[in-house]
């Protein structure tokens, strides 16, 4: 994690708490993603799994605990991020703070069914698009393109889900399944374009090597038929895996390169924001995953080049 800034003056916004909460949330969300959403869903295919019941139960329990810890930290991160964005005292900062607050209210109201499902879906979509727009506006032009591609992919998938929910609620039905294919293309384009977030990309040999390894590994998994990989793509990331395998392999390579490059250049807050967006995935799954996306985009909005000094780390134009 980035060095914690010293507190400047009494009453000043304490960014260190936000850094710790976002760092902890990212760590917990990644454990939840890899253990609960990925391992336990694939481990059932292990022959004679019952003989490993002890370790399996322990690991599954750890995954569930990581999930609940993520939820707690997510709830803590929302007001902290809203406050940090509000304190920027700019139009986009205020709008983003309102979007975060609105999402928190929607997620709280959706649980007991206080609002119709399509209203909750549309509200979440609006929050994500708002934060993607704000985050894009505070990146350089190439970084903005990456975040807008993610926002577009999320929006296309979420519009499909919202229309389906609205139809079930009696608002009429239209055939919108083409939106899913458009979302698939947008999601893959976002991953392929992600190296644009990192300037001077090709000079990082480690990141390049990691990207190449991910490309080969993911390509091998998909190239061999890759049904498990594809269904995990649908479950975890909201992508149905209908495009040629090579495209997903390239996308995995590009994402790995971007993550390693962000790590290598010590752009930790951007890295955390990016990881949270990836952990949330494309489209509407549940308020937890939507929350990860919302928080990730808010962190990216705060960690861009034009930021409040609290979280600013990127000096690129």
């Amino acid at each position: 994690m980035a060095a914690i800034p010293r507190q400047s003056q009494p009453g000043a916004f304490d960014a260190s708490a936000l850094r710790y909460v976002v760092g902890g949330l990212t760590l917990a969300a990644l454990v939840e993603l890899f253990v609960l959403r990925t391992f336990t869903r694939t481990a059932i295919h292990i022959p004679a799994l019952e003989e490993l019941a002890g370790p399996y139960t322990l690991l599954a329990g750890l995954g569930r605990y990581a999930y609940y810890l993520s939820v707690v930290l997510l709830i803590a991160a929302l007001p902290l991020l809203a406050l940090a964005l509000w304190r920027r005292r700019t139009l986009t900062g205020v709008v983003a703070a309102v979007a975060l607050t609105a999402f928190a209210a929607i997620a709280a109201a959706a649980g007991p069914g206080a609002i119709p499902e399509h209203v909750a879906d549309a509200g979440t979509l609006a929050a994500v698009v708002t934060l993607a727009g704000v985050a894009a506006g505070h990146q350089n032009t190439r970084g903005a393109l990456v975040l807008l591609l993610f926002g577009a992919a999320f929006a296309l998938s979420a519009v499909h889900t919202t229309l389906q929910a609205a139809a079930q609620g009696g608002l009429g039905t239209i055939d919108a399944h083409d939106l899913l294919f458009a979302s698939e293309i947008g999601g893959v384009a976002f991953a392929l374009a992600s190296p644009l977030l990192v300037p001077g990309a090709c000079r990082r040999r480690t990141a390049l090597a990691a990207g190449a390894v991910a490309l080969v590994v993911f390509g091998s998994l998909l190239g061999a038929g890759g049904p498990t990989t594809r269904i995990l793509l649908l479950w975890n990331e909201g992508l149905s895996g209908t495009l040629p395998s090579a495209i997903y392999a390239l996308a995995a390579g590009a994402l790995s390169f971007t993550l390693l490059h962000l790590l290598g250049t010590r752009r930790f807050m951007t890295l955390l924001g990016f990881l949270l967006v990836l952990a949330g995935g494309v489209g509407l799954h549940n308020t937890y995953q939507s929350g990860l996306v919302v928080v990730g985009l808010a962190v990216l909005a705060l960690s861009g080049p034009s930021l409040s000094p609290a979280l600013a780390e990127d000096k690129s134009p």
């Binding site: 986009t92 894009a136 506006g137 577009a152 929006a155 034009s306």
Partner: peptide
């Protein structure tokens, strides 16, 4: 409304943020 709104909101805020920067 959803598709148009998302384009307007997303692009508008991105441009606004760029101007602020």
């Amino acid at each position: 409304a959803l598709l148009g709104g998302t384009v307007v909101i997303g692009a508008g805020l991105a441009i606004s943020g760029y101007r602020e920067k």
